[in-house]
Amino acid sequence: MTYNTLSYIIYLPIAIYITVIVGYKLYKNGLVYVESIFGEVKLAQAINKILLVGYYLTNVGYAIITVKDFKHVSNVFELLNEVSLRLASIVLILAALHYINIIVLSFGRKSSIIKIN
């Protein structure tokens, strides 16, 4: 087993775990927002579920696809560097997406409140 294979085996479970946990927390706490935008509980639950699946597909897909960009790893230090770099980029991308999401949700909420009034 080469160091590259080892780094994939370390990297993949951690990346997928982080993505899934973050998605689940956002799904649970985002329901209130989606409900306040659409006003109907059933529709909001359906939309929230579809959004969760879409989030999983795109972000887990991205986490898996970055395995192709790993550099050649020849010792333990390089392995740690490479794995932490990739994990850091995944977490930073998730953070950026999360803030974009919050901004979009707050805009949607404002416009729906204006419509109701």
Partner: peptide
Amino acid sequence: YQKLIETLSYKIGGFSIYLGVMLFLNL
């Protein structure tokens, strides 16, 4: 096996992203 993992990750990750885009298009 390294090449195997890399190829599989490229295919499965790409397919997963494609599915996500399709899901959002349907939505």
